[in-house]
Write a protein that binds this DNA or RNA. Structure first.
Lengths: 203, 203
DNA sequence: GTTAGCATGTAAGGAGTTACATGATTTT
DNA sequence: AAAATCATGTAACTCCTTACATGCTAAC
């Protein structure tokens, strides 16, 4: 029942991809790699076992793909109803997304299929978390630096954090504007129409 | 021989801390948490086993601390010669530090006790790596956004990456200036001494 | 012909996480 | 008295990483 953060993030990402369209493992891996979190690469050694776990849990179904002439038959995974349910439940559980960088990334990646209320919860929670980190970092920056390199690192990290908080502020403002204007849950399926989150220029 | 990136980072961090001064586990954990990578918290469930592994490998020695009256005797870990050796070797192996965010952080944290040449290698390698990521991100940003949220995330990540590259540029320039001016390896051991782990100040 | 991409997996080994176990001391 | 901090660990569970195994097709 537990499942590591890491494992949770992978499962969520897989569910999200399969919710769009059925896929076979190889293609799925490519799309996962294609994700914004560039450093993270999913190896087959973790993807296939994950897929099997999910299959055993009834979250995905594995159809033997139609063996097109001359091509090795591919196993196509598709989301089951239980899988769609699980996806919804995972998306609604925003705590990991606020605490963990990677989880946040995955959640954000799936924002287009997330309810506006949930999006706001993720964004707000994340902001609070980062603000907390920032506070502690700045406290440490206050007292005299023992190690110049360490101090420099802290300084830079604080800057980066402040930037990210600013970014979140913009996004939150945009969300609020949208839900104020749209009345109800304006954006679920998304796709044009709704103004994309405002660009905020830096530099 | 392998050891995960994660495990390597932890070992390196522990070696680094013990190189300053002997410590007992509890205090060591606090200092590790105190690190700039705020999100990462080291649990005793990973610290103590790690310490044991290192003890078995002869990298650290565990002295039974003198049981101060009424206090549970603390086991004080200290670096052995082999441990100091290992520390030097790990610091010289810059590849992981360029590839992995966390490893970079730990290496940077130990820059004060790293040779200038190694520092530059870490910084340069890191810069190249980030530039690579940035390039691929920007390539993706070039073609029309399918999902506004995804696009926004990429945009922000690209900005953050660019910022970090800029930071590295500054650091690299500073390093070059220093080694040009100082001739030899200017900064190596830094100050030693420091208070023994017994600094029991509570608030 | 040989590299590169497509495609699916398994096995060994190492590690992290959470929860549990224990007990003293200091603070509130 | 209760709660927090000091202090050291162990056990069960789960997972990831790396390397290996296999075989087909397309391009160079």
């Amino acid at each position: 029942m537990s499942a590591t953060r890491r494992a949770r993030a992978l499962e969520l990402a897989v569910l999200g991809h399969l919710a769009d369209t059925p896929l076979h493992g190889y293609e799925l891996r490519k799309r996962l790699d294609h994700a914004p979190d560039a450093p993270r690469t999913v190896s087959y050694g973790s993807l296939y076992p994950c897929l099997q776990r999910m299959r055993r849990a009834g979250l995905v179904a594995a159809d033997p793909g139609p063996a097109a002439a001359g091509r090795r038959p591919r196993i196509v995974y598709r989301l089951t109803d239980a899988g769609a349910d699980r996806l919804r439940r995972l998306l609604a559980d925003t705590a990991p997304a606020t605490a963990d960088d990677e989880c946040f990334g995955v959640h954000f990646t799936l924002f287009a299929r997330t309810r506006a209320e949930i999006r706001l919860r993720v964004l707000d929670g994340r902001r609070a978390r980062l603000l907390d980190r920032l506070g502690r970092l700045r406290a440490r920056l206050a007292d005299p630096p023992a190690d110049p390199y360490l101090h420099e690192l802290h300084r830079h990290r604080a800057d980066a954090l402040a930037d990210e908080v600013g970014w979140l502020d913009t996004l939150i403002a945009a969300e609020r504007r949208r839900s104020a204007g749209g009345g109800a849950d304006a954006a679920v399926p998304l796709q044009r129409g709704g103004a994309p989150p405002d660009g905020h220029r830096r530099h």
